[in-house]
Design a protein around this nucleic acid. Sequence first.
RNA 1: GGAGAGGUGCUCGAGUGGCUGAAGAGGCACGCCUGGAAAGCGUGUAUACGGGUGACCGUAUCGAGGGUUCGAAUCCCUCUCUCUCCGCCA
Length: 425
Amino acid sequence: MLEIHRLRNESAAVRQGLLVRGGRIDGDLVDQIITLDDRRKELQTQEDALLHQIKKHSSEIGALFKSGKASEATDLREQVTRIKSEVADLEQESKQVKEALEEKLLELPNIPHPSVPTGSTEDDNEVVKDWDGDLPQLNDGALPHWELGTKYGILDFGPGVKITGAGFPVFKGAGARLQRALVNFFLDEARSAGYEEVQPPLLVNEATARATGQLPDKEGQMYWVEKDNLYLIPTAEVPVTNILRGETIDHGQLPIKLAGYTPCFRREAGSYGADVKGLNRVHQFDKVEIVQVADPKESYAVLEEMVAHVEGLLNKLELPFRILRLCGGDLGFTSALTYDFEVFSGAQKRWLEVSSVSNFETFQSNRLKLKIRKPDSKPILAHTLNGSALALARIIAALLENNQDATGIKIPAVLQPYTGFSLIQ
RNA sequence: GGAGAGGUGCUCGAGUGGCUGAAGAGGCACGCCUGGAAAGCGUGUAUACGGGUGACCGUAUCGAGGGUUCGAAUCCCUCUCUCUCCGCCA
Protein backbone atom coordinates (compact mmCIF):
# COMPACT_ATOMS: atom_id res chain seq x y z
CA MET A 1 0.00 0.00 0.00
CA LEU A 2 1.40 3.34 -1.02
CA GLU A 3 1.77 6.19 1.43
CA ILE A 4 -0.69 8.97 0.77
CA HIS A 5 1.98 11.63 0.98
CA ARG A 6 3.55 10.07 -2.11
CA LEU A 7 0.33 10.57 -4.03
CA ARG A 8 0.41 14.22 -3.06
CA ASN A 9 4.10 14.99 -3.37
CA GLU A 10 4.94 12.81 -6.33
CA SER A 11 1.61 12.96 -8.05
CA ALA A 12 3.03 13.12 -11.58
CA ALA A 13 5.38 10.21 -11.00
CA VAL A 14 2.56 8.14 -9.54
CA ARG A 15 0.33 8.75 -12.55
CA GLN A 16 3.22 8.04 -14.91
CA GLY A 17 3.83 4.81 -13.00
CA LEU A 18 0.27 3.70 -13.49
CA LEU A 19 0.63 4.26 -17.22
CA VAL A 20 3.72 2.08 -17.29
CA ARG A 21 1.58 -0.70 -15.93
CA GLY A 22 -0.31 -0.66 -19.15
CA GLY A 23 -2.94 1.89 -18.32
CA ARG A 24 -5.07 -0.69 -16.60
CA ILE A 25 -5.48 1.55 -13.62
CA ASP A 26 -7.57 4.65 -13.84
CA GLY A 27 -5.35 7.62 -13.02
CA ASP A 28 -8.46 9.21 -11.61
CA LEU A 29 -8.00 6.97 -8.60
CA VAL A 30 -5.23 9.25 -7.39
CA ASP A 31 -7.60 12.21 -7.40
CA GLN A 32 -10.27 10.27 -5.60
CA ILE A 33 -7.85 9.27 -2.89
CA ILE A 34 -6.60 12.80 -2.37
CA THR A 35 -10.13 14.15 -2.22
CA LEU A 36 -11.09 11.56 0.37
CA ASP A 37 -7.97 12.28 2.35
CA ASP A 38 -8.71 16.01 2.32
CA ARG A 39 -12.13 15.30 3.74
CA ARG A 40 -10.61 12.98 6.31
CA LYS A 41 -8.35 15.77 7.50
CA GLU A 42 -11.16 18.30 7.72
CA LEU A 43 -13.23 15.92 9.77
CA GLN A 44 -10.39 15.15 12.09
CA THR A 45 -9.64 18.80 12.68
CA GLN A 46 -13.26 19.43 13.60
CA GLU A 47 -13.54 16.34 15.73
CA ASP A 48 -10.33 17.05 17.59
CA ALA A 49 -11.54 20.52 18.48
CA LEU A 50 -14.77 19.14 19.89
CA LEU A 51 -13.01 16.41 21.81
CA HIS A 52 -10.78 19.04 23.26
CA GLN A 53 -13.86 20.91 24.50
CA ILE A 54 -15.25 17.79 26.11
CA LYS A 55 -11.98 17.04 27.79
CA LYS A 56 -11.67 20.53 29.14
CA HIS A 57 -15.25 20.67 30.38
CA SER A 58 -15.02 17.28 31.98
CA SER A 59 -12.26 18.33 34.30
CA GLU A 60 -14.13 21.53 35.03
CA ILE A 61 -17.17 19.50 36.01
CA GLY A 62 -15.08 17.50 38.40
CA ALA A 63 -13.75 20.65 40.01
CA LEU A 64 -17.22 22.19 40.29
CA PHE A 65 -18.65 19.14 42.01
CA LYS A 66 -15.82 19.13 44.48
CA SER A 67 -16.35 22.75 45.37
CA GLY A 68 -20.06 22.16 45.81
CA LYS A 69 -21.27 24.08 42.76
CA ALA A 70 -23.60 21.34 41.65
CA SER A 71 -25.94 23.40 39.51
CA GLU A 72 -23.13 24.88 37.44
CA ALA A 73 -21.73 21.41 37.01
CA THR A 74 -25.06 20.13 35.80
CA ASP A 75 -25.33 22.91 33.23
CA LEU A 76 -21.92 22.14 31.92
CA ARG A 77 -22.74 18.48 31.79
CA GLU A 78 -25.66 19.17 29.52
CA GLN A 79 -23.44 21.19 27.29
CA VAL A 80 -21.01 18.31 26.99
CA THR A 81 -23.85 16.00 26.09
CA ARG A 82 -24.70 18.27 23.17
CA ILE A 83 -21.11 18.35 21.97
CA LYS A 84 -21.00 14.60 22.17
CA SER A 85 -23.81 14.22 19.72
CA GLU A 86 -21.96 16.47 17.29
CA VAL A 87 -18.91 14.29 17.69
CA ALA A 88 -20.98 11.22 16.98
CA ASP A 89 -22.13 12.70 13.67
CA LEU A 90 -18.62 13.61 12.67
CA GLU A 91 -17.38 10.21 13.65
CA GLN A 92 -19.92 8.48 11.52
CA GLU A 93 -18.87 10.35 8.44
CA SER A 94 -15.24 10.02 9.38
CA LYS A 95 -15.59 6.27 9.56
CA GLN A 96 -17.19 6.10 6.13
CA VAL A 97 -14.52 8.31 4.62
CA LYS A 98 -11.74 6.24 6.12
CA GLU A 99 -13.23 3.03 4.85
CA ALA A 100 -13.63 4.44 1.37
CA LEU A 101 -10.08 5.73 1.50
CA GLU A 102 -8.69 2.39 2.58
CA GLU A 103 -10.61 0.64 -0.16
CA LYS A 104 -9.27 2.96 -2.84
CA LEU A 105 -5.78 2.75 -1.48
CA LEU A 106 -5.88 -1.02 -1.71
CA GLU A 107 -6.70 -0.75 -5.41
CA LEU A 108 -3.51 1.13 -6.08
CA PRO A 109 -0.53 -1.01 -7.08
CA ASN A 110 3.09 -0.17 -6.40
CA ILE A 111 4.72 2.46 -8.59
CA PRO A 112 7.17 0.88 -11.03
CA HIS A 113 10.83 1.78 -10.84
CA PRO A 114 11.92 4.13 -13.67
CA SER A 115 13.75 1.27 -15.38
CA VAL A 116 10.57 -0.78 -15.79
CA PRO A 117 9.56 -0.94 -19.46
CA THR A 118 6.05 0.06 -20.44
CA GLY A 119 4.00 -2.85 -21.65
CA SER A 120 1.00 -5.00 -21.07
CA THR A 121 2.02 -8.63 -21.61
CA GLU A 122 5.01 -10.84 -21.07
CA ASP A 123 6.05 -10.17 -24.66
CA ASP A 124 7.02 -6.68 -23.51
CA ASN A 125 9.42 -7.93 -20.87
CA GLU A 126 12.98 -6.86 -21.43
CA VAL A 127 15.70 -9.48 -21.70
CA VAL A 128 18.46 -7.95 -19.62
CA LYS A 129 20.73 -10.97 -19.85
CA ASP A 130 20.32 -13.55 -22.54
CA TRP A 131 21.98 -16.95 -22.57
CA ASP A 132 25.15 -16.49 -24.56
CA GLY A 133 26.23 -20.13 -24.56
CA ASP A 134 24.80 -23.03 -26.50
CA LEU A 135 21.41 -24.37 -25.69
CA PRO A 136 21.36 -28.08 -24.99
CA GLN A 137 21.42 -30.16 -28.18
CA LEU A 138 19.42 -33.25 -27.41
CA ASN A 139 18.98 -36.32 -29.54
CA ASP A 140 15.81 -36.88 -31.46
CA GLY A 141 14.70 -39.40 -28.89
CA ALA A 142 14.99 -36.91 -26.04
CA LEU A 143 12.05 -37.11 -23.66
CA PRO A 144 10.16 -34.45 -21.77
CA HIS A 145 10.57 -34.68 -18.01
CA TRP A 146 7.21 -36.28 -17.35
CA GLU A 147 8.19 -39.21 -19.56
CA LEU A 148 11.64 -39.36 -17.99
CA GLY A 149 9.94 -39.47 -14.63
CA THR A 150 8.09 -42.61 -15.63
CA LYS A 151 11.04 -44.17 -17.44
CA TYR A 152 13.33 -43.92 -14.42
CA GLY A 153 10.64 -44.30 -11.77
CA ILE A 154 11.48 -41.00 -10.09
CA LEU A 155 8.39 -38.93 -10.68
CA ASP A 156 4.79 -40.04 -10.80
CA PHE A 157 1.67 -37.97 -11.34
CA GLY A 158 -0.76 -40.82 -10.86
CA PRO A 159 -0.76 -41.21 -7.08
CA GLY A 160 -1.08 -37.47 -6.54
CA VAL A 161 -4.31 -37.42 -8.52
CA LYS A 162 -5.65 -40.23 -6.37
CA ILE A 163 -4.47 -38.75 -3.10
CA THR A 164 -5.34 -35.14 -3.74
CA GLY A 165 -6.02 -34.17 -7.34
CA ALA A 166 -4.19 -32.98 -10.41
CA GLY A 167 -1.08 -30.93 -9.88
CA PHE A 168 0.29 -32.75 -6.86
CA PRO A 169 3.23 -34.80 -8.11
CA VAL A 170 4.87 -37.59 -6.16
CA PHE A 171 8.65 -37.76 -6.26
CA LYS A 172 10.09 -41.19 -5.73
CA GLY A 173 13.48 -42.75 -5.08
CA ALA A 174 16.24 -40.84 -6.83
CA GLY A 175 13.71 -38.14 -7.73
CA ALA A 176 12.84 -37.53 -4.11
CA ARG A 177 16.50 -37.55 -3.17
CA LEU A 178 17.31 -35.13 -5.97
CA GLN A 179 14.70 -32.73 -4.67
CA ARG A 180 16.01 -32.98 -1.13
CA ALA A 181 19.55 -32.48 -2.42
CA LEU A 182 18.53 -29.32 -4.20
CA VAL A 183 16.86 -27.91 -1.10
CA ASN A 184 19.98 -28.54 0.96
CA PHE A 185 22.22 -27.12 -1.73
CA PHE A 186 20.14 -23.93 -1.96
CA LEU A 187 20.03 -23.50 1.80
CA ASP A 188 23.77 -23.99 2.14
CA GLU A 189 24.40 -21.47 -0.62
CA ALA A 190 22.10 -18.99 1.09
CA ARG A 191 23.89 -19.48 4.36
CA SER A 192 27.25 -18.85 2.68
CA ALA A 193 25.79 -15.64 1.31
CA GLY A 194 24.93 -14.48 4.82
CA TYR A 195 21.28 -15.44 5.07
CA GLU A 196 19.92 -16.77 8.33
CA GLU A 197 17.86 -19.91 7.81
CA VAL A 198 14.31 -19.87 9.18
CA GLN A 199 11.49 -22.39 9.20
CA PRO A 200 8.25 -20.46 9.24
CA PRO A 201 4.62 -21.59 9.59
CA LEU A 202 2.98 -22.85 6.39
CA LEU A 203 -0.42 -21.51 7.34
CA VAL A 204 -0.93 -17.82 7.89
CA ASN A 205 -3.73 -15.64 9.17
CA GLU A 206 -5.49 -12.86 7.36
CA ALA A 207 -3.42 -10.03 8.83
CA THR A 208 -0.23 -11.69 7.62
CA ALA A 209 -1.52 -12.26 4.10
CA ARG A 210 -2.70 -8.69 4.00
CA ALA A 211 0.59 -7.22 5.16
CA THR A 212 2.63 -8.64 2.30
CA GLY A 213 -0.11 -7.85 -0.20
CA GLN A 214 -1.52 -11.28 -1.06
CA LEU A 215 -4.83 -10.06 0.27
CA PRO A 216 -6.96 -8.71 -1.16
CA ASP A 217 -5.16 -8.88 -4.49
CA LYS A 218 -4.57 -12.62 -4.79
CA GLU A 219 -7.25 -14.11 -2.62
CA GLY A 220 -8.31 -16.62 -5.27
CA GLN A 221 -4.81 -17.97 -5.67
CA MET A 222 -4.42 -19.15 -2.11
CA TYR A 223 -5.85 -22.25 -0.52
CA TRP A 224 -8.04 -21.25 2.37
CA VAL A 225 -8.77 -23.27 5.49
CA GLU A 226 -12.21 -22.01 6.23
CA LYS A 227 -12.72 -23.43 9.67
CA ASP A 228 -9.78 -21.55 11.12
CA ASN A 229 -9.65 -18.74 8.58
CA LEU A 230 -6.07 -19.52 7.66
CA TYR A 231 -4.35 -19.52 4.29
CA LEU A 232 -1.78 -22.00 2.98
CA ILE A 233 1.24 -19.99 1.97
CA PRO A 234 1.77 -19.41 -1.76
CA THR A 235 5.40 -18.56 -1.02
CA ALA A 236 7.68 -18.33 2.01
CA GLU A 237 7.79 -14.60 1.35
CA VAL A 238 4.57 -14.28 3.29
CA PRO A 239 5.50 -15.79 6.66
CA VAL A 240 9.18 -14.89 6.48
CA THR A 241 8.64 -11.21 5.75
CA ASN A 242 5.96 -11.09 8.42
CA ILE A 243 8.44 -12.25 11.02
CA LEU A 244 9.45 -8.60 11.05
CA ARG A 245 5.98 -7.12 11.07
CA GLY A 246 5.66 -4.24 13.51
CA GLU A 247 9.38 -4.09 14.20
CA THR A 248 11.58 -1.04 14.25
CA ILE A 249 15.08 -2.08 13.36
CA ASP A 250 18.18 -0.19 14.38
CA HIS A 251 20.04 0.93 11.31
CA GLY A 252 23.16 -0.81 12.55
CA GLN A 253 21.45 -4.19 12.32
CA LEU A 254 20.92 -3.95 8.58
CA PRO A 255 20.90 -5.73 6.32
CA ILE A 256 18.47 -8.33 7.60
CA LYS A 257 18.86 -11.44 5.45
CA LEU A 258 16.58 -14.43 5.93
CA ALA A 259 16.24 -17.62 3.93
CA GLY A 260 13.43 -20.10 4.28
CA TYR A 261 12.63 -23.40 2.68
CA THR A 262 8.93 -24.22 2.45
CA PRO A 263 6.47 -26.00 0.27
CA CYS A 264 4.31 -23.49 -1.60
CA PHE A 265 0.65 -23.93 -2.44
CA ARG A 266 -1.07 -22.30 -5.36
CA ARG A 267 -4.54 -22.84 -6.70
CA GLU A 268 -3.76 -21.38 -10.14
CA ALA A 269 -7.33 -21.83 -11.28
CA GLY A 270 -8.26 -21.78 -14.93
CA SER A 271 -5.02 -22.93 -16.54
CA TYR A 272 -4.64 -25.80 -18.96
CA GLY A 273 -2.58 -27.16 -21.85
CA ALA A 274 1.16 -27.45 -22.37
CA ASP A 275 1.82 -24.71 -19.83
CA VAL A 276 0.69 -26.92 -17.01
CA LYS A 277 1.97 -30.24 -18.25
CA GLY A 278 4.16 -32.21 -15.87
CA LEU A 279 6.06 -30.06 -13.43
CA ASN A 280 5.57 -26.88 -15.42
CA ARG A 281 2.84 -25.71 -13.15
CA VAL A 282 1.77 -27.56 -10.05
CA HIS A 283 -0.34 -26.78 -6.99
CA GLN A 284 2.39 -27.71 -4.55
CA PHE A 285 6.09 -27.17 -5.01
CA ASP A 286 9.15 -26.63 -2.88
CA LYS A 287 11.07 -23.42 -2.84
CA VAL A 288 13.87 -21.70 -1.00
CA GLU A 289 13.11 -18.03 -0.64
CA ILE A 290 15.53 -15.29 0.29
CA VAL A 291 14.24 -12.14 1.97
CA GLN A 292 16.02 -8.91 2.80
CA VAL A 293 15.14 -5.76 4.65
CA ALA A 294 17.18 -2.81 3.48
CA ASP A 295 17.73 0.88 3.90
CA PRO A 296 15.84 2.69 1.12
CA LYS A 297 19.11 4.16 -0.08
CA GLU A 298 20.59 0.74 -0.58
CA SER A 299 17.70 -1.41 -1.69
CA TYR A 300 18.53 -1.40 -5.39
CA ALA A 301 22.10 -2.44 -4.70
CA VAL A 302 20.63 -5.20 -2.54
CA LEU A 303 18.37 -6.22 -5.41
CA GLU A 304 21.39 -6.61 -7.68
CA GLU A 305 23.13 -8.63 -5.01
CA MET A 306 20.17 -10.97 -4.83
CA VAL A 307 20.07 -11.29 -8.61
CA ALA A 308 23.76 -12.18 -8.57
CA HIS A 309 23.08 -14.82 -5.94
CA VAL A 310 20.45 -16.51 -8.10
CA GLU A 311 22.72 -16.31 -11.14
CA GLY A 312 25.39 -18.06 -9.12
CA LEU A 313 23.02 -20.91 -8.29
CA LEU A 314 22.04 -21.48 -11.89
CA ASN A 315 25.63 -21.33 -13.07
CA LYS A 316 26.61 -23.95 -10.52
CA LEU A 317 23.75 -26.14 -11.64
CA GLU A 318 24.97 -25.68 -15.23
CA LEU A 319 21.54 -24.67 -16.43
CA PRO A 320 21.10 -22.27 -19.34
CA PHE A 321 19.13 -19.26 -18.19
CA ARG A 322 18.12 -15.76 -19.08
CA ILE A 323 17.07 -12.79 -16.98
CA LEU A 324 14.07 -10.63 -17.74
CA ARG A 325 13.07 -7.28 -16.41
CA LEU A 326 9.31 -7.46 -16.12
CA CYS A 327 7.34 -4.82 -17.96
CA GLY A 328 4.70 -2.75 -16.21
CA GLY A 329 1.87 -5.01 -17.26
CA ASP A 330 3.54 -8.19 -16.06
CA LEU A 331 4.87 -6.69 -12.86
CA GLY A 332 3.25 -7.94 -9.68
CA PHE A 333 0.82 -5.67 -7.87
CA THR A 334 3.15 -5.16 -4.92
CA SER A 335 6.46 -4.87 -6.75
CA ALA A 336 8.39 -1.84 -7.97
CA LEU A 337 10.93 -3.84 -9.96
CA THR A 338 11.10 -7.54 -10.67
CA TYR A 339 13.67 -9.69 -12.43
CA ASP A 340 12.49 -13.08 -13.58
CA PHE A 341 14.86 -15.94 -14.20
CA GLU A 342 13.99 -18.54 -16.79
CA VAL A 343 15.82 -21.77 -17.44
CA PHE A 344 15.72 -23.54 -20.77
CA SER A 345 14.15 -26.94 -20.64
CA GLY A 346 15.75 -28.80 -23.54
CA ALA A 347 13.21 -31.41 -24.48
CA GLN A 348 10.21 -29.13 -24.26
CA LYS A 349 12.30 -26.43 -25.91
CA ARG A 350 10.84 -23.72 -23.73
CA TRP A 351 11.87 -21.29 -21.05
CA LEU A 352 10.53 -21.97 -17.56
CA GLU A 353 10.35 -19.34 -14.87
CA VAL A 354 12.28 -20.51 -11.84
CA SER A 355 12.87 -17.33 -9.89
CA SER A 356 11.44 -13.92 -9.39
CA VAL A 357 13.47 -11.33 -7.53
CA SER A 358 11.71 -8.15 -6.48
CA ASN A 359 12.09 -4.89 -4.65
CA PHE A 360 8.84 -3.82 -2.99
CA GLU A 361 10.27 -0.58 -1.68
CA THR A 362 7.84 0.59 1.03
CA PHE A 363 4.75 -1.06 -0.42
CA GLN A 364 4.90 -3.96 2.02
CA SER A 365 6.60 -2.20 4.92
CA ASN A 366 3.84 0.40 5.01
CA ARG A 367 1.39 -2.34 5.89
CA LEU A 368 3.90 -4.32 7.88
CA LYS A 369 4.77 -1.24 9.93
CA LEU A 370 8.36 -2.26 9.43
CA LYS A 371 10.68 0.60 10.14
CA ILE A 372 14.31 1.52 10.44
CA ARG A 373 15.61 3.74 13.18
CA LYS A 374 18.45 5.95 12.06
CA PRO A 375 20.43 8.29 14.25
CA ASP A 376 18.97 11.78 14.48
CA SER A 377 15.78 11.10 12.61
CA LYS A 378 12.38 9.58 13.09
CA PRO A 379 11.98 5.95 12.11
CA ILE A 380 11.47 5.53 8.37
CA LEU A 381 9.76 2.74 6.46
CA ALA A 382 12.17 0.03 5.40
CA HIS A 383 12.43 -1.44 1.94
CA THR A 384 11.64 -5.14 1.60
CA LEU A 385 12.93 -7.47 -1.08
CA ASN A 386 12.69 -11.11 -1.87
CA GLY A 387 13.58 -13.69 -4.43
CA SER A 388 13.26 -17.36 -5.15
CA ALA A 389 16.55 -19.12 -4.75
CA LEU A 390 15.17 -21.29 -6.17
CA ALA A 391 11.78 -22.75 -7.04
CA LEU A 392 12.13 -26.44 -7.27
CA ALA A 393 9.76 -28.31 -9.46
CA ARG A 394 10.77 -26.54 -12.65
CA ILE A 395 14.46 -26.76 -11.87
CA ILE A 396 14.02 -30.50 -11.72
CA ALA A 397 12.17 -30.47 -15.02
CA ALA A 398 15.07 -28.69 -16.69
CA LEU A 399 17.74 -30.82 -15.01
CA LEU A 400 16.08 -34.03 -16.09
CA GLU A 401 15.54 -32.94 -19.66
CA ASN A 402 18.86 -31.22 -20.30
CA ASN A 403 21.06 -33.84 -18.67
CA GLN A 404 19.59 -36.93 -20.28
CA ASP A 405 21.56 -39.12 -22.61
CA ALA A 406 21.73 -42.78 -23.54
CA THR A 407 23.26 -43.72 -20.19
CA GLY A 408 20.76 -41.96 -17.99
CA ILE A 409 20.42 -38.58 -16.34
CA LYS A 410 23.60 -36.91 -15.17
CA ILE A 411 23.65 -35.03 -11.92
CA PRO A 412 25.59 -31.71 -11.91
CA ALA A 413 28.88 -32.02 -10.06
CA VAL A 414 27.88 -29.51 -7.43
CA LEU A 415 24.90 -31.61 -6.42
CA GLN A 416 26.61 -34.97 -6.24
CA PRO A 417 27.80 -34.54 -2.64
CA TYR A 418 24.16 -33.94 -1.76
CA THR A 419 22.57 -36.71 -3.81
CA GLY A 420 25.21 -39.34 -3.24
CA PHE A 421 24.87 -40.43 -6.84
CA SER A 422 26.01 -38.98 -10.15
CA LEU A 423 23.67 -40.67 -12.55
CA ILE A 424 20.03 -41.66 -12.54
CA GLN A 425 19.63 -44.93 -14.40
C1' G B 1 -11.29 -29.20 24.95
C1' G B 2 -12.11 -27.76 30.69
C1' A B 3 -10.55 -24.53 35.04
C1' G B 4 -7.81 -20.46 36.88
C1' A B 5 -4.27 -16.15 36.60
C1' G B 6 -2.60 -12.32 33.75
C1' G B 7 -1.42 -8.67 29.30
C1' U B 8 0.67 -0.87 31.37
C1' G B 9 6.19 2.91 27.80
C1' C B 10 12.95 0.05 25.42
C1' U B 11 12.73 -3.22 30.18
C1' C B 12 10.92 -3.98 35.15
C1' G B 13 6.96 -2.09 37.76
C1' A B 14 3.03 1.41 40.37
C1' G B 15 -1.67 2.78 39.43
C1' U B 16 -9.63 0.53 40.96
C1' G B 17 -13.24 6.69 37.95
C1' G B 18 -11.06 13.12 37.21
C1' C B 19 -5.23 17.01 38.20
C1' U B 20 -2.02 9.98 34.41
C1' G B 21 1.10 9.88 28.14
C1' A B 22 0.94 7.64 32.52
C1' A B 23 4.73 7.51 39.53
C1' G B 24 9.28 4.92 40.59
C1' A B 25 13.53 2.05 39.04
C1' G B 26 16.67 0.28 35.22
C1' G B 27 18.49 1.04 30.31
C1' C B 28 19.94 4.55 26.62
C1' A B 29 21.52 9.72 24.93
C1' C B 30 23.53 14.40 26.07
C1' G B 31 25.70 17.72 29.72
C1' C B 32 28.35 18.72 34.44
C1' C B 33 32.16 16.62 37.30
C1' U B 34 37.28 13.84 36.04
C1' G B 35 44.07 13.62 33.79
C1' G B 36 40.81 9.56 31.81
C1' A B 37 37.01 6.38 33.50
C1' A B 38 33.57 4.73 37.27
C1' A B 39 30.45 6.71 40.84
C1' G B 40 27.59 11.05 41.56
C1' C B 41 24.53 15.12 39.79
C1' G B 42 21.39 17.35 35.93
C1' U B 43 18.52 17.12 31.42
C1' G B 44 16.22 14.33 27.86
C1' U B 45 14.21 9.65 26.10
C1' A B 46 6.99 6.61 22.34
C1' U B 47 3.96 6.34 18.02
C1' A B 48 0.20 7.89 14.63
C1' C B 49 -2.85 11.60 12.72
C1' G B 50 -4.27 16.79 12.38
C1' G B 51 -3.11 22.31 12.75
C1' G B 52 1.13 25.88 12.26
C1' U B 53 6.68 28.72 8.02
C1' G B 54 8.41 27.66 12.99
C1' A B 55 8.78 27.51 18.56
C1' C B 56 4.85 24.62 19.36
C1' C B 57 -0.40 23.19 19.83
C1' G B 58 -4.50 19.57 19.50
C1' U B 59 -6.42 14.48 19.31
C1' A B 60 -5.80 9.29 19.87
C1' U B 61 -3.11 5.13 21.86
C1' C B 62 -2.05 1.32 29.02
C1' G B 63 -3.40 -6.58 24.27
C1' A B 64 -7.82 -5.53 20.29
C1' G B 65 -12.81 -3.94 19.57
C1' G B 66 -17.40 -2.29 21.64
C1' G B 67 -20.23 -0.20 25.98
C1' U B 68 -21.38 2.67 30.70
C1' U B 69 -20.08 7.86 32.30
C1' C B 70 -19.75 14.87 31.92
C1' G B 71 -14.94 12.10 32.47
C1' A B 72 -12.04 5.22 31.86
C1' A B 73 -5.36 2.34 32.30
C1' U B 74 -9.12 1.98 36.20
C1' C B 75 -16.24 -0.37 35.68
C1' C B 76 -19.11 -3.82 32.00
C1' C B 77 -19.22 -7.06 27.40
C1' U B 78 -16.83 -9.66 23.28
C1' C B 79 -12.40 -11.27 21.14
C1' U B 80 -7.23 -12.34 21.34
C1' C B 81 -2.54 -13.74 23.32
C1' U B 82 0.63 -15.52 27.43
C1' C B 83 1.24 -18.47 31.91
C1' U B 84 -0.37 -22.55 35.46
C1' C B 85 -3.31 -27.05 36.33
C1' C B 86 -6.40 -31.02 34.05
C1' G B 87 -7.65 -33.73 29.49
C1' C B 88 -5.89 -35.24 24.62
C1' C B 89 -1.67 -36.00 21.60
C1' A B 90 3.19 -36.45 17.18
